[in-house]
């Protein structure tokens, strides 16, 4: 049944309630996400930054999913590849690069965390760590807290399919399911946990099937299609906001780059496989959809890409010139220093 629901959603796309202006904004965010992510890779290869963990190929899943949430009241537990989620929620390219360099003005951590370890209190994006799936119990707890406080926020919690093998996935999803907590568990199934393909990770055919074990809806959707992803996640958000509990959404997509700047993917997957998926590039697909709908045309797309390239150049420079953290800052905020967090 879950799979049928997903298929139905895909068939309906790209019919959508999203207005043209919003769609253009999402397209721009997608293009910016790609440009930022590629710049991070370049900076790492130049030796300017130490590390990056690319999201190339997953932009539609990220931007389509987060579009279904209400940034004024919802809570977000993104995972490290979610550049598109963060740019959708108000993080700027400069912010991302500040984190890439580890500069003091990095809004996530003041240069303490590795790149792409998101935190943005003003947007209710909660700080995360590197061990995967650890945010899933947190999301369940935040969902429970919103219920207790009588607030109508919904919690976005994303992770890769590798995380669904972990105990914290089971414990967190089960907890949310038992309590009917308003949490959307959004799995960006990019087919690989570093070098390990799906057949080494799970015996089920789809991550969405795992939902049956928790008595919650599980839906699988084409994660390279913004409209399809948005439609499925939006229905899940509506259910959660109505008090009907969590949903597990699997967005089927593909990691076009290596796992991280420290990875070399040449010995575990073929160039042909990557080329096949590159043909389904989510940005190209979204662009074609928008052109068909008359929302975008080629000239406008080119102008937009040029604007984004300039923005990313300027953001890179600004971040590069920003000050480093002082060593004296490293001992601060081990514990509260009066007041409980600048964001709360």
């Amino acid at each position: 049944m879950a799979r049928k629901q997903g298929a139905a959603a895909e068939a309906r796309a790209p019919a959508t309630d999203l207005p043209a202006e919003r769609l253009l904004g999402m397209y721009r965010t997608m293009v910016t996400t790609r440009a930022v992510d590629e710049r991070m890779w370049l900076l790492q290869r130049q030796g300017a930054i130490a590390f990056t963990i690319p999201c190339k190929g997953q932009e539609a899943a990220q931007i389509g999913a987060v579009a279904a949430f209400d940034p004024s009241r919802d809570w977000f537990y993104p995972y490290y590849r979610d550049v598109g989620v963060m740019l959708s929620l108000g993080m700027t390219p400069r912010d991302v690069f500040l984190g890439g360099f580890g500069k003091f003005d990095d809004p996530e951590s003041g240069g303490r965390q590795m790149p792409y370890h998101w935190s943005l209190p003003k947007a209710r994006v909660v700080t995360g760590s590197s061990p995967v799936a650890t945010q899933i119990p947190h999301a369940a707890g935040t969902g429970m807290a919103l219920q207790l406080k009588g607030e109508d926020g919904v919690v976005f919690c994303s992770f890769g399919e590798g995380s669904t093998s972990k105990g914290d996935f089971h414990e967190g999803v089960n907890f949310a399911a038992v309590r009917k907590a308003p949490v959307i568990f959004f799995c960006e199934n990019n087919q690989y946990a570093i070098s390990e393909g799906l057949e080494k990770q799970m015996a089920v055919r789809s991550v969405a099937e795992r939902a049956a074990a928790y008595g919650i809806p599980g839906e699988s959707v084409d994660g390279n299609d913004v409209f399809a992803t948005y439609a499925v996640v939006r229905r899940a958000v509506e259910r959660a906001r109505a008090g009907d509990g969590p949903t597990l959404v699997e967005a089927r997509t593909y990691r076009l780059m290596a796992h991280s700047s420290g990875d070399d993917d040449r010995n575990y997957r073929t160039r042909e496989e990557i080329a096949e998926w590159a043909k389904k590039d989510p940005i190209q697909l979204f662009k074609e959809q928008l052109i068909r709908q008359g929302v975008l045309d080629e000239a406008r797309a080119q102008a937009l890409s040029a604007e984004v390239a300039d923005e990313v150049d300027a953001a890179t420079d600004a971040a590069e010139q920003a000050p480093w953290p002082e060593v004296a800052d490293a001992t601060r905020f081990v514990y509260a220093e009066g007041g409980n967090g600048r964001g709360r």
Partner: peptide
């Protein structure tokens, strides 16, 4: 549920939410 990681983990999520 009988699951220590989520007992603490969900408590963390509730704590950050106020």
């Amino acid at each position: 549920p009988l699951a220590e990681s989520v007992i603490v983990g969900a408590a963390i999520g509730a704590a950050v939410a106020g």
